[in-house]
């Protein structure tokens, strides 16, 4: 089988997880699905680079993280990517009413620097191990754990869970 077929077919069952990761990274539903579209196009274009002995999910998650970083750069960090007024749209986009707690969570996540947000998305939302996240981000494991600890501290402080 051609590698592009293997990648294409392998990605189908990964779509829900890819969308979850994108949502955790990008926040808004529309942004997240735009990100997923970019990721799928890149993955298909680069399918020859995927080695069948490598886990396809980690491979495509790395593409997703890099595409998200590219998107952040393109928009400019100073721009309003996660500005507070947009957080309201995040909730409205989801269609269903959500508890206020989740609005606060979206706002709290939006304050995290990208370095922290991506470890939260990969380890806490997607459930990767420290080793897997470190390999994907191409940083030492200690960097993953320290970013994760600081991100948790920030989130707990913002969410008022640290009382």
């Amino acid at each position: 089988m051609h590698s592009s077929d293997a990648v294409r077919e392998g990605l189908i069952p990964l779509l829900p997880r890819l969308r979850r990761l994108a949502r955790a990274l990008a926040g808004q539903v529309a942004d997240a699905d735009d990100l997923v579209q970019v990721v799928l196009e890149r993955a298909l274009a680069r399918s020859a680079q995927w080695r069948p002995d490598a886990a396809l999910d980690k491979w495509v998650f790395a593409i997703a993280r890099n595409a998200w970083r590219d998107e952040l750069r393109a928009r400019g960090r100073a721009q309003h990517l996660f500005a507070p007024e947009e957080v309201g749209e995040t909730v409205a986009d989801a269609g269903a009413a959500r508890p206020a707690q989740q609005l606060e969570l979206a706002q709290a996540l939006a304050t995290l620097p990208p370095d922290h947000r991506e470890v939260v998305a990969l380890v806490l939302v997607e459930g990767l191990s420290y080793d897997e996240a470190a390999a994907l981000l191409e940083v030492p494991v200690g960097t993953v754990t320290s970013r994760l600890a600081r991100a948790r501290g920030t989130l707990q402080a913002l969410l008022g869970n640290d009382a």
Binding site: P16, A106, L124, Q156, L159
Partner: peptide
Amino acid sequence: LDAQLRAAFDPVLDE
């Protein structure tokens, strides 16, 4: 906190 994150994002899997 972890449970809160999962509650916020895991429903995406069922969409």
